[in-house]
């Protein structure tokens, strides 16, 4: 069965959900919006693996599972290894002719939070991408270890308050910059690498479909607003994500074969990053007079990055 073509939201809503409710993610969590969208954008059988993280601990609390597809969890770092192992097995059995239904397409997807993608599982994903397995890795980037109480990760942006990079009299929160994870996996030469966001559902669904259709390892970084650790009201998840994409804190773009960059979303009105920062409690301290320079620095870095992305797109590299 071919992947469902998605023209509008009404058509999209006729899909049969494969991610069940009564999982224990926080109210208003963006993780489940992203996961639902991935499971809904295809009809094919799916084999999923998840790194330890919010998604894993909340959707498989014994004795319940929220997954209507094959799903496995092993450790904090090895969802990519687990799912590529399953993929290698599938290919071997297909070659030997021992599959029950060899013509049914199967897609292999691994999920991980930013902690397990940027830090702990980094070399496992890098290895899986280098080996060239046919799978898609999706990082649900909420910029901290939200599952264990909001510690800093290497995805936490500069200036954010976390439980291990606290803002106070001496410090303004995390002092280091965020890793450019999309650039890192593009440099692996992966056939499809992208950064997507759930508030632009159509761009995200198309990106997911493209990644699933593409043969070879694909990496997608998705913005997942965290109501608990970013400290905003649960109902504002989509509003905060809108601010993130419109202030270009999270530009939405794809890189094909590591050599061709396309910007997928250009905001009509680019808003100052201050609006995005002001909507979240974790950046509250930046608005004190002694910390204003951090906001200016963030704005400067965003402008430079946007300029860089536009020049790359223009030059088609």
């Amino acid at each position: 069965m071919a992947i469902t073509s998605i023209k509008n939201l009404k058509e999209f809503s006729t899909t049969n959900e494969r991610f069940e409710g009564a999982h224990l993610l926080c109210p208003g969590c963006a993780h489940s919006m992203i996961v639902r969208e991935l499971l809904n954008c295809t009809d094919d059988n799916l084999v999923l693996a998840t790194n330890t993280g919010c998604l894993e601990v909340s959707t498989a609390v014994y004795p319940y599972t929220s997954w209507d597809t094959s799903w496995i969890h092993i450790g904090f770092e090895n969802a990519a290894s687990a799912v590529t192992g399953a993929e290698a097995m599938y290919k071997a059995r297909k070659r030997k002719g021992t599959l029950k239904d060899p013509d049914a397409p199967v897609k292999f997807v691994a999920f991980g939070g930013d902690g397990s993608t940027f830090d702990i599982g980094f070399q496992w994903i890098s290895g899986a991408v280098e080996r060239g397995h046919d799978f898609t890795y999706i990082c649900l980037d909420n910029e901290n270890y939200a599952n264990t109480g909001g510690q800093r990760s290497s995805a936490t942006p500069i200036g954010a308050h976390t439980s291990t990079a606290q803002a106070g009299r001496v410090s303004y929160g995390k002092k280091q910059k965020k890793k450019d994870i999309v650039g890192i996996f593009a440099a692996h030469g992966a056939p499809y690498v992208a950064q997507l966001s759930p508030n632009k559902w159509k761009i995200m669904a198309k990106g997911f479909q493209k990644a699933l259709e593409t043969e070879g390892p694909c990496f997608i970084n998705t913005v997942s607003a965290c109501t608990t650790e970013w400290k905003f009201d649960p109902k504002d998840t989509i509003h905060v994500t809108d601010l993130a994409t419109d202030s270009l804190m999270f530009p939405i773009y794809e890189i094909i074969n590591g050599t061709k960059l396309n910007i997928l979303y250009r905001p009509k009105n680019i808003i100052p990053v201050e609006e995005y920062l002001a909507a979240q409690g974790r950046y509250k301290h930046l608005f004190k007079p002694e910390n204003r320079h951090v906001i200016e620095q963030i704005q400067k870095e965003i402008d430079e990055k946007w300029e860089y992305l536009q020049r790359r797109e223009e030059a088609s590299v």
């Binding site: 939201l9 809503s13 991610f19 109210p27 969590c29 919006m33 759930p198 559902w201």
Partner: peptide, 11 residues
């Protein structure tokens, strides 16, 4: 319009 459907985190 199905906006609520696509963004509901709890199915």
């Amino acid at each position: 319009c199905q906006n609520c459907w696509v963004w509901c985190p709890d199915t």
